[in-house]
Write a protein that binds this DNA or RNA. Structure first.
Lengths: 122, 122
DNA sequence: TCCATATTTCAATTATCGGTGAAATATTGA
DNA sequence: TCAATATTTCACCGATAATTGAAATATGGA
């Protein structure tokens, strides 16, 4: 992934509401969630949410599809993985002390806010 | 790592010059680099660089130490690793298709701009 | 001490971002 | 078609971020 795209993705994720959107949609898997449901889940106005969704979609982190009168958003996991891989490989020069990726070193901080229906939890 | 700190870090990294600073300093390892040398390497003004360095330092991504009349900046690899771990574990809910961390999947895109004196390349 | 070097701070300007509410654009069902 | 629902677009405004150049601070060497 080229740096300009990584920068767009980092800018998109560097916002409270938008990072929550990503968290929520990753948890939902390919089922995704309609804009209205996201709006309700996160307590943000429809127009405000639309702005943030478009930022994330323009960065390539989300995909959307229409289903009847709803617009279903899903996380683009490949893009998210690309950003993380960039940070690990390109930015961090593969320093082993940075790459703590297989160990769940943040488990103690995690609250587990979102449920993940249809997605197996290890 | 708590989300507010992750957000600060993402904001700090979501800028062309600042991401370059991080890349450069990670490559330099614990030797780090003086502000003037960074300024010259990246072609940014001293005052502009100072602004960006302070953003990164406030986010916890850099450390600095004084050495004679120089100020040496180094990357805080633990903080960087914390951000990556957050994205992998908390944000991405450990979806295995996101976690491509051990494979160097971006190798083909990487230019290898910076040298890493004193740091073994695997 | 005096000067050159290294870095930061400050003030001013411009650009971009984020929030709000009204209006516009679909889409469905009665 | 009409009304209700779902979402986006738009214009506006205030807040924050980035850039620039000048001035201030600190350090080391002649």
């Amino acid at each position: 992934m080229e740096q300009s795209r990584v920068l767009k993705s980092l800018s998109a994720m560097a916002h409270d509401t938008r990072l929550e959107i990503v968290r929520l949609l990753v948890a939902r898997g390919d089922d995704g969630l309609a804009a209205g449901a996201i709006s309700e889940a996160l307590g943000v106005s429809a127009s405000g949410l639309s702005f943030h969704l478009s930022q994330l979609e323009q960065a390539g982190l989300l995909k959307s599809r229409k289903a009847s009168r709803h617009v279903i958003y899903t996380a683009n996991r490949a893009a998210l993985g690309g950003v993380i891989a960039y940070l690990l490989n390109d930015c961090c020069a593969r320093h082993p002390d940075i790459c703590a990726c297989t160990d769940d070193i943040n488990a103690k901080d995690r609250a587990g806010v979102y449920s993940s229906p249809g997605i197996a939890k290890t």
